[in-house]
Design a protein around this nucleic acid. Structure first.
Length: 408
RNA sequence: GGGGAGAUACCGAAGUGGCCAAACGGGGCGGAUUGUAAAUCCGCUGGCUCUGCCUACAGAGGUUCAAGUCCUCUUCUCCCCA
């Protein structure tokens, strides 16, 4: 029985995308066979991706595997999205030199709620097209003996091979026993959802392997592991909220465009490859031109994926006004304070532009502060406020706000 | 269980009785420059009612005119031996 031509084309498309978005594939030989069988049996592949609700923002770095997941979805396969509300309780040590604090059940619940919204900007979460699971479903009911059984699935030596653990051991840093359970938990997720393929960032390779091994032990067909390259942050380091170099999927269009524009030139090729919808030839063309133009195209493409073309164009325009022409943006947040006159240093704090009056004083001394576009340096200057005409406070190019006082 | 080392600001790391709100590096934030950047140069980087005062060097006590620095206990981490 011959394969329909559509299937061959679709498979090639999918494989091209897989190519573009992956750095490592474990079990690549079996992947094509799996695709063929899936088509023959009319049974979509179960493609797993897990994310722990350990923080509130999902960023573009996380979006790379999600985009690949979307590609699978578009080709008729079934994303199995695991919200790691069980694993998050443990604190994922991945890529860190110190363990993440274990979160409380409330933290996790709150974060989980915002996750699906953000992921939904990329993935189609229609229950008919996507399976969403929370791993507390199986970890929540485990008792200590179940956990021991889980622990017996691997060995200390094997777990210590993990790069992150190895490094910390070498640096005489603590590796706690419960952290070593993490790969086992992630692997067990694969067993529970019977995944055919698992996606993850390339720092996840160890954990993905664990899923394969555990599935084999459980008598299942071992999953294909695909890792995506890590999208670097705007400063060239690993994208991470703690570095402040991330672009959140829930960022507003202006913010998103602006942050991407602050990416260093060197970072562009990787971003084009992993975060845009552009074809390879379009990308090459962009990169051959002026870096400013290329970055604009990059930022527009990504921003419009999330916010739409109009918002992206508006963001680009606003950016030029604010940062290239140094103009004050059209829309500025406004705040209202209780008093009709305040010392400048206190006012800056009251308006939320700085964390403390000490910081305000320093910035004033540095000449960073403008009031109604005039540089000011005296922290004790008494600023008169009115209820109708706002006073514009500015610190640098980015921090600005209009202030009025409450009408009495 | 025994022995040893250690815990300093956002991070790394100096400091072993006064000159310590704490060197130095990174990060961050401002300023100059620019193509939005990057690089470079300069400045800042605990708080306040700010030429002074208050709170800080794991935690709690103590010695001293004076403690990040000395003593005691507690907590946590690492290493070696069992």
């Amino acid at each position: 029985m011959g394969r329909p031509i559509q299937f061959i084309i679709a498979t090639m498309q999918l494989q091209n995308l897989v190519q573009r978005f992956t750095s490592d594939i474990v079990g690549e030989e079996q992947f094509e066979k799996m695709l063929v069988k899936s088509s023959a049996d009319n049974k979509p592949l179960r493609v797993k991706f897990g994310i722990d609700p350990t923080f509130t923002d999902v960023h573009l770095g996380h979006s790379v595997p999600i985009r690949l997941l979307r590609a699978f979805q578009d080709h008729g396969h079934l994303p199995v999205l695991i919200i790691g509300d069980g694993t998050a309780r443990l604190g994922d040590p991945t890529g860190r030199n110190e363990q993440r604090p274990a979160l409380t059940a409330e933290d996790v619940a709150r974060n989980s709620a915002t996750y699906l919204d953000q992921i939904g900007t990329i993935l189609d979460l229609d229950p008919a097209k996507c399976e969403v699971r929370h791993n507390s479903e199986w970890f929540g009911g485990m008792n200590f003996f179940d956990a021991l059984k889980l622990a017996s699935q691997s060995t200390a030596a094997r777990l210590l091979e993990r790069d992150d653990f190895k490094k910390r051991m070498q640096q005489n840093q603590a590796v706690h026993l419960h952290e070593m359970m993490y790969p086992l938990m992630q692997g067990y997720d694969s067993v529970m959802v019977e995944s055919d393929v698992e996606l993850g960032g390339n720092d996840q390779l160890f954990n993905l392997h664990m899923g394969r091994r555990m599935q084999e032990r459980a008598g299942q067909r071992p999953q294909i592991c695909m890792t995506t390259p890590l999208l670097l942050g705007t400063d060239g380091r690993k994208m991470s909220k703690t570095y402040g170099n991330h672009v959140g999927l829930n960022a507003g269009s202006n913010d998103m465009y602006g942050k991407i524009m602050s990416l260093s030139d060197d970072g562009m090729p990787l971003w084009f490859q992993l975060a845009t919808t552009m074809r390879d030839d379009e990308i090459s063309q962009c990169l051959a031109g002026h870096p400013r133009q290329a970055k604009d195209a990059l930022a527009r493409n990504i921003t419009s994926q999330i916010h739409g073309d109009d918002a992206a164009n508006a963001a680009a325009e606003a950016f030029v006004q604010q940062f290239v022409k140094n103009k004050i943006p059209d829309e500025i947040n406004e705040c209202i304070v209780g008093e009709s006159a305040m010392k400048l240093a206190s006012l800056l704090k009251e308006a939320g532009l700085v964390a403390s009056t000490s910081e305000a004083r320093r910035l004033l001394k540095d000449g960073a502060v403008k009031v109604d576009s005039e540089s000011q340096s005296d922290p004790n200057w008494l600023v008169e406020l009115s209820a109708t005409d706002a006073v514009l406070l500015q610190i640098g190019k980015r921090r600005m706000i209009n202030v009025r006082c409450a009408s009495s």
